[in-house]
Nucleic acid binder design. Structure first.
Lengths: 209, 209
DNA sequence: TCACCTTTTCGACCGTTGGTCAACACTCAG
DNA sequence: CTGAGTGTTGACCAACGGTCGAAAAGGTGA
């Protein structure tokens, strides 16, 4: 009922315009021009400028979220493996989008904050249930020792999202790595898992060079 | 050299205007009118509208940050007590400001996201060094067992800021409490501290009724 | 007091923006 | 053919952030 061709056309135009540019400097007229349609049509498909951004966020996370939900039910796979798969799916779909904005020596990395924050919110809200379920299964299977599965899921998601985005709280690369190592260590010790069992979280930082 | 009387007058006006209102709907002219000065004067003291917001954030955190820095050196006080004091200072100064915006049944709590995010960034960046130092002293004193003091400081700050603000990733109260309990449990188990030693973190949620 | 200079204050003004709207084009069931 | 419904459009509007020249306010030396 939704996705007309133009709907995605508008989103494509915005995505294209977003390359190396500040969110605030993109006008609705410009989006319309890039999409090759009239400005009025934009407001036929979207109620406001902000709604376009939100729709773009949702479209980008559509696939990894499906993956996460499916994975939550696949109890024959080890919980750790499933977690790794979810993180990988989220990472690959978000990096394609977010990395583009960390253009070389951008004056103020916080400028596109609104978009980044929408990503963070969307991802945490949507992935949390699946991740919680997986952790809960891991607890029942005796692989994870912890009393608050939902809290654990949220903590991991929050820290990973904030640190890996690196736009909400910008910091040098070595800080990101240290925080990640610390998180892994904290999780391993806190959930009674052997050292190294959560190392898949660090693959997060390795961008395919 | 800075703080002229008008400088703070402008910030006061913005603060007043911010009560129960969306950030985006406040115009520079309105700030000027509320402050009782001409619009041109605003731009004599601030280079842009955004700069006013940033200045307001900084002004609000001035005192707790001083507190944190002083506390970091007071090695005669127990690390846990010092941490509790820092959190209390941050909480009291930010709640006065942020709570005001969670007006009853606000349609979209994410609307003032930009301001909240500035708060988060400022707080994490500025408090982290002091908290790291305190943790490091706690490690040396044998009270905390963990290898990554800076990471630990950042993880705690990130989770607390995100969850207690409740505007970046809005969620019901019981979720906040569970996440906090989970964080405490994770920290206690992960740093080798006895159950209950970090309970001061939960006083965070108790608003003085 | 005056002249002179700097700092501060101001609101009219400007270009641009997000959003509206009446009109128009096209389709297709009756 | 008709006309209701679905898209599509760019001119238009109020409002915005920001600029600017002028003028008021304040200080200094004589």
């Amino acid at each position: 009922m939704a996705n007309h061709a133009k709907y995605d056309l508008i989103l494509d135009a915005l995505e294209k315009l977003l390359t190396g540019r500040n969110l605030q400097t993109i006008s609705v007229s410009e989006i319309a021009q890039t999409a090759g349609i009239g400005k009025g049509s934009i407001y036929y498909y979207f109620p406001s400028k902000e709604a376009i951004f939100e729709a773009l966020v949702e479209r980008n996370y559509e696939k990894p979220l499906e993956t996460a939900k499916k994975l939550a039910g696949q109890i024959q796979i080890s919980p750790f493996t499933r977690m790794a798969m979810i993180f990988q799916a989220c990472r690959s779909s978000s990096s394609a989008f977010l990395d583009r904005q960390q253009s070389p020596l951008q004056a103020n990395p916080q400028e596109n904050s609104l978009l980044h924050q929408k990503y963070m919110n969307h991802l945490i809200t949507e992935v949390k249930p699946a991740l919680t379920e997986i952790i809960r299964q891991g607890i029942q299977a005796g692989e994870i020792h912890f009393d608050y599965p939902a809290a654990l899921a949220e903590i991991v998601l929050i820290v990973l999202t904030v640190k890996l985005d690196n736009s909400l709280v910008p910091s040098p690369v070595e800080d990101i790595e240290e925080t990640l190592l610390g998180l892994i260590s904290l999780l391993e010790k806190g959930t009674g898992n052997p050292v190294g069992s959560l190392n898949f979280l660090t693959t997060y930082t390795q961008t395919p060079s």
